[in-house]
Amino acid sequence: MLSNSHDFVWPADTGERACLESLVRGDYDGSHPGETFDDMKRRMSFSREDQGLYRDWMALAAARAETARAASPSPIAA
């Protein structure tokens, strides 16, 4: 998983960002009782710790998305 601040996942648009966030939102919410993924996102503007947490969760989401793409069969044009 990416942890270097220079290796950040940059979604192409808000749709891709929402898709990536949906891959980890439930895990974050389940592992942080009393707070939500959106709580962390709100704190990012003033908390370096939350910026790092978000970066790491997005890296995990990108890895999950890549794994899902690799596992799904792609049609081959003949």
Rank of each mutant, 00 (worst) to 15 (best):
E16D: 06
F37S: 06
G15Y: 06
R69C: 12
D13V: 14
S22M: 05
A61R: 06
A65L: 06
L53M: 15
P11M: 09
A78Y: 06
S3G: 08
G34A: 09
A59E: 01
A18T: 05
A68L: 10
Y54W: 11
G52A: 08
V24G: 04
A71T: 03
Y54H: 15
K41A: 10
L60V: 07
D7S: 10
R25Y: 03
Y28E: 01
V24W: 01
T36N: 12
W10I: 13
G26R: 12
P75R: 15
E21R: 09
S22C: 02
S72I: 10
D39T: 13
D38I: 15
D13T: 12
A61M: 01
W57I: 03
R55Q: 02
V9Q: 09
D29F: 04
R42D: 11
D27S: 14
A12W: 05
A71M: 12
R42S: 09
F37H: 07
R55V: 07
L23M: 12
L20H: 01
W10V: 15
P73V: 15
S45I: 14
S3Y: 12
T14Q: 12
A65H: 04
M1H: 07
A78D: 04
K41E: 08
L60W: 00
I76M: 13
H32K: 10
A65Q: 12
H6A: 13
R42Q: 13
A61K: 05
W57P: 01
W57Q: 08
M58G: 05
F46E: 02
A68D: 04
G26P: 00
P11I: 09
A70C: 07
W57C: 03
V24A: 02
T14N: 07
P75K: 10
F46I: 07
R25V: 09
A70W: 03
S45D: 05
A59P: 00
Y54T: 10
A61L: 08
M58Q: 04
C19V: 07
T36F: 08
T67H: 14
L20D: 03
Y28L: 06
F46K: 05
L2Q: 07
D27N: 11
